[in-house]
């Protein structure tokens, strides 16, 4: 069954495509924006911006750590560099450069990691960013966003350009269902409730928002009404929304396409413990790397399905 089918969501665009289009469109309004690429602009879609504004696109070659520090230099001259690569190569290859050339000096660099998660499929685990959210969230005073669909990614792209300071936006490779039609309410640090429900709250990000809506459709047939929160900002976390969900539903499941350690689950759990402790369950990639395969087969094999989310809900309610 295709993602979003159970909850009747139409298929939409890939979040990397939405990011690329939004950046190209916003280029004229934000004259300080420049892109720094590491020979993957045709994958991350920053080439659309660079083709539209050739004098504002830099490609340093396959050299991620250099790329990030170059962006730091551009930012310290008042530019707003958008630095995109595969999430795995950006965060993992250039982490010290992100720390020393971006986060520590608190420069206005916009990091964008595409090809996140196992849903990239056939290219396999070396190309799958599954630690990026943990790494990005570990950086002090850095905004971390993981968007769920095209419209919210466009809104996040604008919000990241408006924000003064380091940001990380995580995007995916495959097409994902439309979560928002029309205007998206998008404020950094404010979760969106995409389904109301009082029996349990599912907090999700990325493509797991659609999966969670599918799970909610399954659960509704069993008489369980699940609230689904699109927690598009992992940092700063929307503490109020988490506390309210815990208070009003009494059980929380967190679903994400990321390793267990340091991801959304860990962040929400620490928030729940501090505000309103309730039983929790987690749907994520656990503590192991995946493999090559077709995206749907991988999501199934590694337990990122509507059925897995529904089972976690039953467990936590049980």
């Amino acid at each position: 069954m295709a993602l979003g089918e159970l909850s009747g969501l139409p298929m939409g665009e890939a979040t990397r495509d939405a990011f690329g289009r939004a950046l190209e469109e916003l280029g004229a309004t934000y004259p300080n924006v420049v892109t720094v690429d590491g020979d993957v602009g045709n994958s991350t879609r920053t080439e659309w911006f660079a083709n539209a504004f050739p004098e504002r696109g830099f490609n340093v070659g396959i050299a991620e750590s250099n790329m990030v520090s170059v962006a730091g230099g551009l930012a310290s001259c008042g530019k707003t560099p958008v630095v995109a690569s595969f999430a795995a190569f950006l965060l993992c290859n250039a982490f010290d450069q992100i720390r020393m050339s971006v986060a520590f000096p608190r420069l206005n660099v916009k990091l964008v990691g595409t090809h996140a998660g196992i849903s990239i499929g056939e290219d396999g685990p070396s190309q799958m960013g599954v630690e990026d959210v943990a790494l990005a969230c570990s950086l002090a005073d850095t905004v971390v966003m993981v968007t769920s669909d095209g419209a919210s990614t466009r809104a996040a792209t604008k919000a990241m350009l408006e924000h003064d300071g380091p940001t990380y936006l995580r995007c995916g490779r495959p097409k994902v269902p439309v979560i928002y039609d029309g205007d998206v309410p998008f404020t950094i640090g404010k979760a969106n409730t995409v389904r109301e429900g009082g029996d349990v709250a599912i907090v999700a990000n990325g493509l797991m928002v659609a999966t969670s809506l599918d799970a909610a459709a399954l659960l509704a047939k069993e008489g369980i009404e699940a609230r689904v929160l699109d927690m598009h900002t992992a940092k700063p976390i929307d503490e109020e929304a988490v506390a309210k969900a815990a208070e009003e539903t009494g059980a929380i499941v967190v679903a994400e396409e990321h390793l267990a350690a340091g991801g959304l689950g860990a962040i929400v759990a620490s928030t729940v413990v501090r505000t309103k402790p309730v039983p929790m369950a987690f749907v994520n990639l656990g503590d192991s790397y995946a493999e090559s395969g077709d995206p749907d087969g991988l999501l199934e094999k590694y337990g990122l399905t509507a059925e897995a989310v529904a089972a976690a809900v039953r467990g936590v309610k049980g």
């Binding site: 056939e122 396999g124 070396s126 190309q127 395969g293 087969g297």
Partner: peptide, 8 residues
């Protein structure tokens, strides 16, 4: 899926 002859 399942093959050790991976993409990389």
């Amino acid at each position: 899926l399942g093959s050790p002859i991976e993409g990389h």
